[in-house]
Amino acid sequence: LYHVLGLDKNATSDDIKKSYRKLALKYHPDKNPDNPEAADKFKEINNAHAILTDATKRNIYD
């Protein structure tokens, strides 16, 4: 999941948040209406963010 956000395992919560915002804006379906690959990437980014920002889920993942 870290690679989805372009981060390593030592990433801080701020790093995760910044990377998520940058990538979410880039791949958001509203910005890429005719690109199904961007929509899939956006879903991956959201999933990675949801797990890595939840301390319990992140510990389980790590």
Score class of each variant (00 low, 15 high):
39 A>R: 13
50 A>Y: 02
6 G>F: 00
19 S>E: 11
13 S>P: 07
28 H>V: 04
27 Y>R: 02
54 D>G: 07
50 A>V: 09
33 P>L: 03
50 A>N: 12
24 A>K: 12
23 L>E: 12
7 L>E: 07
26 K>R: 09
33 P>G: 14
60 I>Y: 12
16 I>F: 12
23 L>D: 10
14 D>R: 06
10 N>K: 04
7 L>M: 05
49 H>F: 14
14 D>P: 06
34 D>Q: 09
49 H>S: 07
48 A>C: 00
50 A>W: 01
24 A>S: 14
30 D>I: 04
41 K>I: 09
51 I>H: 07
20 Y>D: 12
53 T>R: 10
38 A>C: 05
54 D>M: 02
11 A>R: 00
34 D>A: 10
46 N>F: 12
57 K>F: 00
51 I>Y: 06
28 H>P: 13
62 D>R: 04
60 I>K: 15
32 N>A: 06
34 D>E: 12
25 L>Q: 13
56 T>P: 03
55 A>M: 08
37 E>G: 12
31 K>L: 04
60 I>C: 14
45 I>F: 01
23 L>W: 04
17 K>S: 10
6 G>R: 03
7 L>R: 02
54 D>Y: 00
13 S>H: 03
45 I>G: 08
29 P>C: 04
14 D>S: 08
58 R>I: 03
44 E>M: 11
28 H>Y: 05
18 K>D: 12
1 L>I: 11
42 F>P: 05
40 D>M: 15
7 L>P: 08
23 L>R: 03
10 N>W: 05
54 D>N: 14
46 N>H: 12
44 E>R: 04
62 D>G: 10
16 I>D: 02
60 I>M: 14
3 H>M: 10
11 A>P: 03
32 N>C: 05
39 A>E: 10
60 I>N: 15
38 A>G: 09
39 A>G: 12
30 D>R: 09
24 A>Y: 15
58 R>A: 12
39 A>M: 10
53 T>L: 12
45 I>A: 09
42 F>L: 15
51 I>G: 08
16 I>A: 06
24 A>E: 13
56 T>F: 03
19 S>M: 13
52 L>T: 04
22 K>Q: 15
4 V>I: 12
12 T>I: 05
19 S>A: 13
8 D>S: 05
58 R>D: 06
11 A>K: 02
45 I>L: 13
25 L>W: 06
24 A>L: 11
32 N>I: 01
18 K>C: 11
33 P>A: 12
3 H>V: 02
22 K>N: 09
8 D>G: 04
15 D>E: 12
32 N>L: 01
27 Y>F: 15
58 R>G: 09
37 E>R: 11
32 N>E: 06
52 L>E: 07
23 L>P: 04
42 F>K: 09
15 D>T: 05
2 Y>N: 13
17 K>A: 14
23 L>K: 08
5 L>H: 13
34 D>M: 01
43 K>Y: 15
5 L>V: 00
60 I>V: 15
18 K>A: 14
55 A>K: 13
7 L>N: 04
35 N>G: 07
28 H>R: 09
31 K>S: 03
11 A>I: 00
35 N>S: 12
11 A>M: 00
32 N>M: 10
30 D>K: 14
57 K>A: 12
59 N>D: 08
48 A>I: 01
18 K>I: 13
24 A>G: 05
54 D>V: 02
39 A>V: 13
52 L>C: 00
15 D>C: 08
52 L>Y: 03
7 L>Q: 06
12 T>N: 04
42 F>W: 12
46 N>K: 12
44 E>K: 05
57 K>I: 03
29 P>N: 07
4 V>Q: 02
29 P>D: 11
43 K>E: 06
39 A>I: 14
20 Y>W: 15
26 K>Q: 13
58 R>V: 05
48 A>T: 01
30 D>W: 01
18 K>S: 13
37 E>F: 13
1 L>R: 01
61 Y>A: 15
35 N>A: 09
25 L>V: 13
3 H>N: 07
12 T>A: 00
50 A>E: 02
54 D>F: 00
18 K>Q: 11
43 K>R: 08
10 N>D: 06
6 G>V: 00
61 Y>K: 09
17 K>T: 12
